[in-house]
Amino acid sequence: MQKLTRIITLSVSIAVISGCSYVGVYKRDIPQGNLVTEEMVDQLQPGMTQEQVTYVMGRPLLEAPFDAREWDYVFRLDKAYAGVEQRRVTLTFDNQGRLANIEQEGDFSQDIPLEADSTGGPATDTTDPTEAIPNQPRQNTTPSTTN
């Protein structure tokens, strides 16, 4: 009977421990949208053309579907072990396509640290794509001359 009690206690303990995330699950920061910094917004001046704004800020994430004069730049960072940080810049253009109004939401005073993922990713133009494939035999690419 004592042996059965130990087996049941051990089984219940293992079941409870396996269901708990005591160690935790790996989480990573998830950035979404246009990265908008204070330096970018400081470069904006009323009267700039849409092309000049695109050069400074990039293409907007959202263009109002019924009014092409309003551009929204939205950036959202879902921090893995903290909260969510959101920034939004809404730019309004006049009828001549000149920047008329700049509205900001969020805290632009701090830089957002974004870590580059150095593990994996697509091959760059300067590398041979076959070098990115592990354990693949390399083929001879020189043409053979057979007569």
Score class of each variant (00 low, 15 high):
P137T: 08
P113R: 01
R69T: 09
R88N: 11
I112Y: 00
V36E: 13
F108A: 02
E38H: 06
D29T: 02
S118Y: 03
L114D: 00
S13W: 05
V23Q: 08
F108M: 03
Q45C: 05
P65T: 07
R59G: 07
M57Y: 00
P137C: 08
S11K: 04
R138M: 12
S11H: 03
P143E: 14
I8V: 13
Q43Y: 10
K79F: 08
S11V: 11
I7G: 01
L77A: 01
L91T: 00
L35A: 01
T127A: 13
V25E: 12
A68I: 07
N147C: 09
R76T: 11
A100F: 08
T92P: 00
G106I: 07
K79W: 07
Y81H: 14
I17F: 15
S109W: 03
Y26K: 06
G19V: 08
N135I: 02
D125A: 13
E39Y: 02
S21K: 05
D125G: 11
I17L: 15
D125T: 07
V56Q: 05
R88A: 09
T90L: 13
W71S: 06
S21D: 15
I133Q: 10
P60A: 12
T9K: 03
Q32A: 09
E63R: 11
T54P: 00
A100Q: 13
V56R: 01
T5C: 10
M40E: 10
R98S: 13
T5N: 09
A116Y: 06
P137M: 09
T124S: 12
I133N: 03
V53R: 00
N135Q: 05
N101L: 14
T9H: 02
R69N: 12
T54V: 01
V89Q: 03
T146R: 03
R76C: 04
